[in-house]
């Protein structure tokens, strides 16, 4: 049943307009010739040109991508373990604390986690000499810590959807637990691993607050550079950057959606074929 009440439709229309109009305006004004962001001065690519000549922004982008790739990979590794623990390990000593530590980073205000992890680094350095100063390593660790919570949730929910008798079947057929994990569980949850990694990558790429705490003087990430320039006001160069970011994200999501849609179609077709064969018997 579909409910076509005018109230719901207008709520949806208003809501989506609210979500998308600001982004669309950003994109439109990134092609604005005029330096004044609010006045249309003709179509131009000039801000994109300036963007690609901004050494500081490009350097920061490079650092951000590096950190995002590293922390997403680490977070996926740790998050997969944590998801496995949550979904499959039953009770063990300290489970309550563990699940608390998994969910808390997702709701904790970032100023707190950022401050906390920075102070941790300072104390650690005092005690052990490591980490020597703050920079890419400390930012990566901080990002890994909050991103792994999200990865854990993704993996955990995938695992709890999975029929665990599939794993039992593998064991029943003679595979030892470690082999069961690598031959059966991992291939089945692979899509969740990919989306977990992408989620962690995006979170890391986008983070400002935690990064600001964990960063050293020589390691400014893209959001930090953007933030300090935005604080001074609106510049069309940032609009151009925003357009690129939105464009890439949209492209990636649309592509992922298309691939999933096609797989679904194939699956449906195969299913129909199998059913037709059965009827023919």
């Amino acid at each position: 049943m579909t409910n076509r009440s005018p109230f719901l439709i207008s709520a949806l229309a208003f809501g989506f307009a609210f979500l998308y109009v600001p982004i669309l305006l950003l994109i439109v004004f990134s092609f604005n010739e005029s330096k004044l962001v609010t006045v249309w001065g003709g179509f131009s690519f000039k801000w994109y040109g300036e963007l690609f000549q901004d050494e500081q922004l490009l350097g920061a982008a490079k650092i951000s991508l590096l950190i995002a790739a590293m922390s997403a990979t680490l977070a996926t590794l740790l998050g997969t373990m944590a998801g496995l623990i949550m979904a499959r390990f039953g009770r063990f000593k300290g489970r309550t604390l563990f699940s608390g530590m998994i969910t808390a980073p997702m709701v904790m205000p970032e100023v707190i986690t950022g401050l906390a992890i920075l102070l941790m680094f300072v104390v650690l350095e005092e005690l052990t000499g490591w980490p020597d100063g703050r920079g890419i390593t400390t930012i990566t660790i901080a990002h890994t810590t909050f991103a792994m919570a999200y990865v854990t949730i993704v993996i955990q929910s995938r695992l709890s959807q999975m029929d665990d008798s599939v794993e039992e079947a593998a064991m029943d057929l003679g595979a030892r637990p470690l082999k069961v994990f690598f031959l059966i569980t991992l291939p089945i949850i692979a899509p969740a691993l990919v989306s977990g990694w992408l989620l962690a990558f995006t979170l890391s790429l986008d983070d400002l607050v935690t990064t600001s705490f964990a960063a050293g003087p020589s390691s400014s990430t893209l959001p930090m550079v953007v933030f300090s320039s935005v604080r001074l006001g609106v510049t069309p160069k940032i609009n151009a950057l925003a357009t690129i970011v939105v464009g890439l994200a949209t492209l990636a999501i649309v592509m992922a959606g298309y691939i999933m849609h096609r797989q679904e179609q194939q699956r449906k077709r195969a299913m129909q074929r199998a059913l037709a064969e059965q009827d023919a018997l």
């Binding site: 986008d206 400002l208 953007v226 609106v234 940032i238 925003a242 970011v245």
Partner: peptide, 11 residues
């Protein structure tokens, strides 16, 4: 999936 900072900036 797009940037939080940029979405705030848009306003």
């Amino acid at each position: 999936w797009t940037s939080f900072l940029i979405r705030v900036y848009a306003w």
